[in-house]
Write a protein that binds this DNA or RNA. Structure first.
Length: 502
RNA sequence: GCUCCGGUAGUGUAGUCCGGCCAAGCAUAUCGGCCUUUCGAGCCGACGACCCGGGUCCAAAUCCCGGCCGGAGCACCA
C-alpha cells in the first residue's frame, strides 16, 4: 500500500509531511479550570529575543488549556530597575501576541513577604543573622551552622523586627531560610531570604529597608497566586530546589516545574547593562537599534511576531542548550511576509550607463507577484528612453560585455559605460548575442532609469548600504519591502530603511 | 573543587519516560533540476546524524556501566 503511494502519488506524502505543524507536548496535572502560570521578568529594560521564549511557551499553554497567565514584575532589587521597563515589558508582550490575564508587581507585596517570613522564623524554619557572611559561607561549605541558626525563634524574631523597622545598617544583617546543611549540593544549603537596602526604590521610595531575595518572594508569590505550572529556564533548577523548602515548611502544594535549556543568541546584543551604556555613549540609537536583540529592535527590523512564536514552538521545551538559528528564524519570517511585501528595485552602489536609444520602452512590473494572496494587482509602470540606466556596480563588473535581461524591460548588452537595447523578447537579435548559452540562462538584473531617489539601508551589523531606490517605494512606508535580488527591508521613511533579512 | 543536567545531520528539532512500526521523520542550509522575466520565493530531487567504548537482550537512538565533551548552580542579582 505505502509502496503504491510512494510510486504513484508521491505528492500525497510530501503534502502530508508539510502540513504537520509541530506541537508542544502536553502538560501533566492539568485540571478542568485550566492552568495558572506566570512570566516573571525583572524591570531592568525591555524584553529581548531570549525572554520571548519564556513568554511564548507560557502563552501557548494558556491558549491550549485556558486559565490564567500572570505577568509578575520582579522589582525587588532597586539597583536594577529601569522605570520605563514596567511599561515597555507590557508593550513587548502585546506585540508578541502574548495575553497576560493579571499583572502583579512584587514591590506592592512587601507586607505579605514580611508576614510570611515572620511565620517561618516563629516555626524555627528561618533565622536572622549578624554573623559576617564570610563565616556563613565557609560554614555552609563544611556543613556547619552559624550561631544564630541554633538560637530560639524568640531571639531571631527580635532581630527580625529590628531588621524590618530599620534598626540595622546595610550589610549588617541578613535573614536566612533553613534547608539542610548536609545537602550534598552546597548550592542548596541555607539561603539568604532578606537583606537591607538603603537605596530608594523607584516606586516605593524609602518605605522599606528589608528587601526579599528572589528565592523567597518567588516561592511566596507562586503559592499565593495559585500557580499550577511553572515554566522557566534551567538556570533556575537550583532555585527551584531552594524554593521547595519553603513550600514544604508551609505544607503548600507544589506547582509542576518545567525547565527549558539555555538558548545562546549569537551576533546580537542582549545584555541590558551593555545596551544602556551604548545608548548613553551614542553607539546605539536607542532600545530599537538594529544591532540589538530587543523585541522593539525586531519590530523595527520588520519581523513578524508570528515568526518568533513559530520558532520557539518548534524549538519545544527540551532541556538541551541550543544556539538560536538566525537562518531558520529568517526563513520562518520570510514565509510569513513574502506575499505581502511589495517588490521594488534598490540599486546598491549604483553605476550609471549611457543609453542611446531612439524611441521609448515601457516596463510594467507587478508590485505583488502573488496576487492571489495579496489581492493587489498594481504594477509599477515606467517609460525608458534616451538617457541613463542605473545598475549595481556588482552586476556591471560581472556582466560587462555580456547579454543581460533588465527585469521586465528587455534584453540589453552592457559595453563598459554604455548599454544597448537588443530586443524585448527572445528573437534572432537576442540569439545572436547569446550564441553559447541556453536562452533561459540570460541573467536577469534589476535597474533604474529616471525613477530613482537616494536611499540608505542599515544592516544589523551596523554597516550601511547606500544607493538608489524606485520612487514608487515611498508609497509604502513603514512596511517591509522585498528589494528584488537584494533582500527584505523595512522602509522607515523616504530616505532609509532597516535590513530585515536576505 | 562540589552538586546537578544534557549530548540525534552544518543548524534547529521529532523519537528516548513504556526497547521492536527508526535500515531514524521534519525544518533550515548546501548542491542540482524546473520556471522566456524577481529572488535568497515556488515546485522536484540529492546530500547529510543517533558522542565513544563496553554490557543486558532475539532486538538498543531508546535500558545499565565507564569515558569524553558541553551546560547550569555554588551572590546580601533575577
Amino acid at each position: 500500500m505505502s509502496e503504491i503511494v510512494k510510486r504513484d502519488f508521491p505528492e500525497l506524502l510530501a503534502t502530508k509531511a508539510r502540513d504537520e505543524e509541530k506541537r508542544l507536548p502536553d502538560l501533566p496535572n492539568v485540571e478542568k479550570g485550566g492552568v495558572v502560570m506566570r512570566m516573571a521578568p525583572s524591570p531592568s529594560g525591555p524584553l529581548h529575543i531570549g525572554h520571548a521564549r519564556m513568554a511564548i511557551l507560557n502563552d501557548e499553554y494558556l491558549r491550549r488549556y485556558g486559565g490564567k497567565l500572570i505577568l509578575r514584575i520582579e522589582d525587588t532589587n532597586p539597583a536594577n530597575i529601569e522605570l520605563d521597563a514596567y511599561q515597555m515589558i507590557q508593550e513587548d508582550l502585546r506585540w508578541l501576541g502574548v495575553n497576560f490575564t493579571d499583572l502583579v508587581i512584587q514591590s506592592k507585596r512587601f507586607d505579605l513577604y514580611y508576614s510570611e517570613m515572620k511565620k517561618l522564623i516563629e516555626a524555627g524554619n528561618a533565622y536572622v543573622a549578624t554573623t559576617p557572611t564570610e563565616e556563613f559561607k565557609s560554614n555552609k561549605q563544611r556543613g556547619l551552622p552559624i550561631r544564630e541558626r541554633d538560637e530560639t525563634p524568640e531571639e531571631n524574631l527580635e532581630r527580625w523586627e529590628k531588621m524590618v523597622s530599620g534598626g540595622y545598617e546595610k550589610g549588617e544583617v541578613y535573614a536566612v531560610v533553613k534547608t539542610d546543611l548536609n545537602h550534598p549540593n552546597p548550592a542548596i544549603r541555607d539561603f539568604i531570604a532578606f537583606r537591607v537596602i538603603d537605596t530608594p526604590h523607584p516606586l516605593e521610595g524609602d518605605k522599606y529597608r528589608a528587601y526579599p531575595m528572589m528565592n523567597f518572594s518567588v516561592a511566596v508569590d507562586d503559592h499565593y497566586l495559585g500557580l499550577t505550572h511553572v515554566i522557566r529556564g534551567k538556570d533556575h533548577i537550583a532555585n527551584t530546589e531552594k524554593q521547595k523548602y519553603i513550600f514544604g515548611y508551609r505544607d503548600w502544594k507544589l506547582p509542576y516545574y518545567l525547565h527549558y535549556g539555555k538558548v545562546s543568541i549569537e551576533h546580537t546584543i542582549l545584555k541590558t547593562s551593555l545596551i544602556k551604556k551604548g545608548i548613553r555613549s551614542g553607539e546605539f540609537s536607542g532600545w530599537d537599534d538594529p544591532k540589538l536583540g530587543t523585541l522593539v529592535a525586531f519590530k523595527k527590523r520588520g519581523f513578524d511576531p508570528l515568526a518568533i512564536r513559530k520558532y520557539y514552538v518548534e524549538s519545544g521545551i527540551g532541556s538541551v542548550d541550543t544556539t538560536f538559528s538566525w537562518e531558520i528564524f529568517y526563513s520562518f519570517n520570510r514565509k510569513i511576509i513574502d506575499s505581502r511585501s511589495p517588490r521594488h528595485f534598490f540599486v546598491n552602489q549604483p553605476v550609471s550607463l549611457k543609453f542611446d536609444f531612439e524611441g521609448t520602452l515601457r516596463a510594467d512590473i507587478p508590485l505583488f507577484p502573488q496576487t492571489s494572496q495579496s489581492g493587489e494587482h498594481r504594477n509599477r509602470s515606467y517609460t525608458v528612453g534616451k538617457g541613463t540606466i542605473i545598475i549595481t556596480s556588482q552586476d556591471h563588473q560581472k556582466f560587462d560585455g555580456e547579454l543581460v535581461r533588465l527585469k521586465d524591460l528587455g534584453f540589453f548588452k552592457i559595453e563598459s559605460s554604455r548599454i544597448e537595447y537588443i530586443g524585448a523578447s527572445i528573437n534572432e537579435d537576442v540569439q545572436k548575442w547569446n550564441p553559447n548559452k541556453p536562452l533561459g540562462k540570460v541573467p536577469i538584473i534589476h535597474w533604474l532609469s529616471g525613477n530613482e531617489i537616494p536611499f540608505k539601508v542599515t544592516k544589523p551589523d551596523g554597516s550601511e548600504d547606500t544607493g538608489m531606490i524606485e520612487r514608487d517605494a515611498v508609497n509604502y512606508l513603514g512596511t517591509v519591502h522585498q528589494f528584488e535580488r537584494y533582500g527584505y527591508v523595512n522602509v522607515l521613511n523616504e530616505k532609509e530603511g532597516y535590513f530585515t533579512h536576505p
